[in-house]
Simulated assay, not measured.
Amino acid sequence: MNLPAHGRSVLVSGASRGLGRAVARAFAANGDRVAVHYGSRAEEARETLASLDGSGHALVSGDLADPEQAARVVAEAAEALGGGADGALDVLVNNAAVNLPHPPATTPYEEWVELWQRHVSVNLLGTAYLSRLVAGRMIAAGTPGRIVNIGSRGAFRGEPDHPAYGATKAAVHALGQSLAVALAPHGIAVASVAPGFFSTERVAPRLTGPEAESIRAQSPFGRVATPEEIASAVLWLASPDAEWASGTVLDLNGASYLRT
Rank of each mutant, 00 (worst) to 15 (best):
residue 84 G to A: 00
residue 162 H to A: 11
residue 118 R to M: 12
residue 96 A to F: 06
residue 132 R to P: 13
residue 44 E to V: 03
residue 105 A to L: 13
residue 240 P to Y: 00
residue 211 E to N: 05
residue 22 A to R: 10
residue 173 H to I: 01
residue 91 V to F: 11
residue 246 S to F: 08
residue 235 L to W: 00
residue 99 N to E: 11
residue 143 T to S: 08
residue 180 A to S: 08
residue 103 P to N: 00
residue 63 D to M: 06
residue 208 T to F: 01
residue 55 S to C: 05
residue 247 G to R: 12
residue 9 S to L: 06
residue 243 E to A: 14
residue 170 A to G: 15
residue 242 A to H: 04
residue 13 S to R: 11
residue 73 V to Y: 08
residue 5 A to D: 12
residue 197 F to T: 14
residue 72 R to I: 02
residue 179 L to S: 07
residue 189 A to F: 05
residue 126 G to M: 08
residue 59 L to K: 10
residue 85 A to S: 12
residue 120 V to G: 05
residue 86 D to A: 15
residue 8 R to E: 00
residue 253 N to R: 02
residue 195 P to K: 01
residue 214 S to F: 06
residue 200 T to L: 07
residue 243 E to F: 15
residue 18 G to S: 11
residue 25 R to Y: 03
residue 251 D to Y: 09
residue 146 R to P: 15
residue 40 S to P: 15
residue 120 V to C: 05
residue 4 P to F: 01
residue 93 V to D: 12
residue 26 A to Q: 13
residue 53 D to A: 15
residue 230 I to R: 04
residue 80 A to Y: 02
residue 172 V to C: 08
residue 32 D to M: 10
residue 8 R to A: 03
residue 143 T to N: 00
residue 3 L to A: 06
residue 217 A to G: 10
residue 70 A to P: 12
residue 151 G to I: 03
residue 102 H to Y: 09
residue 6 H to S: 14
residue 173 H to S: 12
